[in-house]
């Protein structure tokens, strides 16, 4: 059985007589020890969905099963018990501002029933883990954003959780600090085998952290795959939009006009690194009698596997070009015809 199972989750809010369906019929399961990501634009329902896992948000319909416990049928006591084994990391850190770091952690430990006498040692251990051992008596306002988030991680780990939920945990941080936090989370996942569910709108995070990823749009799950597959060949509209923006191949208008002076077709291609594209390009050029001009190309690494990103310009007779496009579509993972008037 999977560690987290969400079955047909609906979440409906009633706001001033208006009904808002934040999550619509979402089912997914997360395995023990994996890093599962949910991506989507803001307002897609990601935050609401992730909060059903520790039942900060009760679903209107559906079933939430965590480690075999059906939370939808559990009483408040059982829910509190399950919560202690689920750490939560927030975008805005959410530390108690008027309490020191040690007191912030002591609160989480007390909530988890950790014996008071052993708390000081545990607090030192936790702060040491995130590299803030000498800041015990500081207040959150004395820390930078990245340091605050590290305290957030320490707090989430206080009671030896089995699961970490991260709600845009890197979105309020600069790129470098965000990478630092991602490395910490990766290390935690590998060393302690803690399952991580991470929601974000940043595809950089998806690329460097997630094992599997789901795409959410308007409250629905529109796609679910390995991270590599999502980047190589997104299936849903939203998946394609998110990935295209990330693997940006748009040419500046002036350049595009220059390139496309002669009649032809601009193609954006993405292909799995294991395929070697050169023979295909040469072959298609030969077969169809067109010229293929490579405008730009690069290789992205996702989960340590390569994805080729290429923009080519096809010139030749209209019939030959359309045939060539067909052949590309058969042999390459992702083909997008870029219209010159865009």
């Amino acid at each position: 059985m999977s560690q987290i199972e969400l079955k047909n989750i609906d979440v409906t809010f009633k706001q001033k007589g208006r009904t808002v369906q934040a999550v619509k019929d979402v089912s997914l399961s997360v395995e023990k020890g994996e890093i599962f990501g949910i991506v989507g634009l803001s307002g897609a329902g990601k935050s609401t969905l992730v909060r059903t896992i520790n039942y900060l948000q009760a679903p209107s319909n559906g079933q939430v099963v965590v480690d075999g416990t059906d939370l939808t049928r559990a009483n408040a006591k059982t829910i509190a018990k399950v919560r202690r084994k689920i750490g939560f990391i927030f975008q805005n850190f959410n530390l108690i501002n008027n309490r020191t770091l040690a007191q912030n952690l002591a609160f989480a430990l007390t909530a988890g029933g950790y014996p008071e006498k052993q708390q000081p040692a545990r607090i030192t251990e936790l702060l040491d883990l995130v590299g803030l051992a000498d800041r015990q008596d500081n207040y959150p306002s004395q820390l930078s954003g990245g340091q605050k988030q590290r305290v957030g991680i320490a707090r989430a780990l206080a009671n030896d959780p089995d699961i970490l939920l991260c709600d845009e945990a890197t979105s309020a941080l600069d790129v470098e600090t965000a990478e630092e936090i991602i490395e910490i989370l990766k290390g935690i996942n590998q060393r302690l085998n803690i399952t991580i569910v991470f929601i974000t709108h940043q595809l950089e995070v998806a690329r460097s952290l997630f094992d599997r990823v789901a795409v959410m749009e308007n409250g629905q799950l529109v796609e679910q795959s390995s991270t590599y597959d999502l980047f190589a060949a997104p299936q849903s509209d939203m998946g394609q939009r998110l990935v295209s923006r990330f693997l940006d191949t748009t040419l500046p208008a002036k350049v595009q006009a220059q390139v496309t002076q002669t009649d032809g077709q601009l193609l954006a291609l993405r292909y799995r690194g294991s395929d070697s594209l050169n023979p295909i390009i040469t072959k298609i050029a030969k077969e169809t009698g067109i010229d293929i001009n490579i405008i730009q190309g690069r290789v992205e690494f996702i989960q340590e596997r390569a994805i080729g990103v290429l923009v080519v310009y096809l010139t030749g007779t209209a019939v030959a070009i359309s045939r060539a496009v067909q052949v590309f579509k058969q042999r390459v993972d992702y083909v997008k015809e870029v219209t010159t008037h865009e």
Partner: peptide
């Protein structure tokens, strides 16, 4: 958010009052 974070630790209301609501 701070209250939500406190809630997510599984803490009861009394502890949250004492350690979060009151100092904040």
């Amino acid at each position: 958010g701070v209250v939500e974070a406190a809630r997510s630790t599984g803490a009861g209301f009394f502890l949250i009052f004492q350690e979060v609501l009151f100092p904040e």
